[in-house]
Design a binder for these strands. Structure first.
Lengths: 339, 339
DNA sequence: GGGTTGTAGTGAAACGTTTCACAGGTGGCA
DNA sequence: TGCCACCTGTGAAACGTTTCACTACAACCC
């Protein structure tokens, strides 16, 4: 019941309080005999360090937090696992928080993480643009690494995948397969990744010799459900106006579109080809195996954590870096009509 | 840079340290004029509470932790979201930790969470059975709620879904559809859920009038990959010996089996029917929409969090409860050959 | 033997809160 | 006027660590 503290351990072992602390933190300063006495006392009393006190005194925590947009999006779970590996190897602990793409929940989480004085923060903010809230972290000495957002900010590191390049890959592939009316499904367009992927696709098509059309189908979110709704829209168009291929801003949307089109009796890829984005594990297991733009997700998490820890160690003279990874197109049946 | 503390705020506002604390914690004790002065000082200095100190003094945290087996398993992400909603409504914060089904990582996470003196712990332990490690939490006054594990333990609450009933549902369904040679794909069998689902299925078949066979295909894990390997085993059997239906311990396995069988040229459900477990979002989007046993996942998380908070409040006179939810069978194409 | 060096262990101070007994001041009431 | 009650605000104590200046003692060297 009563949580034993260092003082009780000291008394029980017949040594001073400072000695117990030394056993815990610098065991080499203590003679083996004394050390053993202390360790025995610790076991006997079931003593466990109080991290609050330790942290209060030390002024720093060994906990790194990652605040993601959606815990149930496989993209983020892989990023988390990459980051986890690095943080744990460094002897720290990674805690995962979820904003659910809700600015208020993001705010709340940031508030509590700042109060906790976490060692550092990996975050994908809900909105792109300026983040005074994150500047507060930096000012307080808590390094922040942006994940898949806001590359190039002068006062923090960032890791991202080149979404413009990803958009290009997808559109070029579809154009090469002979598609001339192409749709882009994604939204909200305020999300930078969505906008970038769209711009990349548009740019790729504009670079082509022959004219290509890129019709925008805006969705309220990046979910399977939103994809189904977009499919309804697509199905409602006359065959001559309907895009013969769509590029979706992520795989959840793509799976939704696939399901929706199938429900409407449209065939993939014969009537409409689909390319998704993220290459989640289930992309290959979809009703029609899904072509997708693959991002090095775990790598993203690993690098983000490494940058964070590096900044956290090199107090003072740290150069912020912006790492950009290149995506890769994985072609499967959903876009392979002409192969 | 220098994180402002309460003392500096007090000085800046021209009041005493205790008054600032009162403004923060019991604003009604402070006159409006003074309160405003203090609030202004707080804003001006960018003061943010130090949770370590607060927690040290208070002896308790407002952070609830959930330690899951696999952050990237959709089952757990839904449980997390359910728990999140409840904890946040209560003004707390939920942090997610991942054991990755590795006992050593579980151990490490538990160590750090105990040091942090979290308010409570929702956990799905890697191994079933006795958990002296968790008893330590309870002894220290940190309530523990088991999620989908170890129902009936006298010193902690638990929430679970009736896996035996789930197994029965699946097997009865397949038997009714006329299958007599049925396979069970799952493992390791040391995982209680796997064993329960198997037992439920076996029991349902034993209750039948006509003899039914339940052949066990053990897998090393509950992943898509393991499912693919199980499919190889199935495909290698002669058609007359091969089960005409398999019940998989979870949907990841089922998707893997589906993929693997298809790759071997076997048709689902014509050659082999499949029933999965969990009804993850992608079950319906699989190459062949997957029949599955659905668990009330978010409900599980919500209830777990509610039990935890209740125990945390009602210090002393709390009755541990064990809530068992009933699963539900969702029939889709993968098992619907005779419909 | 005096001085130096090194090793083991000590205990007070400090980290930033919250709480609590208490002090000053104001107004009401007899 | 004297007493009491009430409202605001005060500042010291306590939470459990880590750190650091310090003591005690032994060993070594000249």
């Amino acid at each position: 019941m009563a949580a034993a503290n260092i003082k009780q351990v000291a008394k029980h072992a017949g040594v001073s309080l400072g000695t117990v602390s030394n056993v815990l933190n610098r065991p080499d300063l203590v003679s083996p005999a004394t050390r053993q006495k202390v360790l025995d006392a610790i076991t006997e009393l079931g003593y466990v360090r109080n991290d609050s006190a330790r942290q209060l005194r030390a002024g720093r925590s060994r906990t790194v937090a990652i605040l993601v947009l959606d815990v149930s999006n496989p993209f983020f779970t892989d990023v988390v696992r990459g980051a986890e590996a690095v943080v744990e190897k460094a002897g720290g602990m990674l805690i995962v928080c979820n904003s659910g793409e809700d600015p208020r929940r993001e705010q709340r989480n940031l508030d509590m993480l700042e109060e906790q004085r976490v060692q550092g923060l990996l975050v994908t903010p809900v909105s792109d643009g300026r983040h005074p809230r994150l500047d507060a972290f930096v000012k307080r000495g808590i390094p922040v690494v942006l994940v898949d957002r806001g590359s190039g900010h002068p006062s923090r590191c960032s890791v991202a995948v080149d979404d413009v390049a990803g958009g290009r890959l997808a559109a070029e592939h579809l154009a090469e397969r002979g598609h001339e009316r192409i749709g882009f499904v994604g939204g909200p367009v305020t999300i930078r990744q969505v906008a970038d992927r769209h711009h990349g696709a548009a740019a790729a098509l504009a670079d082509r010799d022959t004219p290509h059309d890129l019709q925008l189908f805006t969705t309220p979110s990046l979910s399977v459900d939103a994809g189904r709704q977009a499919a309804d829209e697509l199905a409602a168009l006359a065959a001559g106006e309907r895009p013969t291929a769509v590029f979706c801003a992520n795989d959840l949307l793509a799976l939704g579109v696939l399901q929706g089109l199938t429900a409407h009796g449209l065939r993939v890829p014969e009537d409409v080809a689909i390319v998704g984005y993220d290459d989640i594990e289930f992309a290959a297991a979809a009703a029609v195996p899904l072509s997708s733009v693959r991002q090095p997700r775990a790598q993203l998490g690993r690098t983000a954590a490494e940058l964070l820890l590096e900044e956290s160690m090199n107090d003072g003279n740290h150069q912020h870096r912006h790492v950009m990874f290149q995506p890769e197109l994985v072609i499967r049946v959903s876009s392979d009509r002409y192969r």
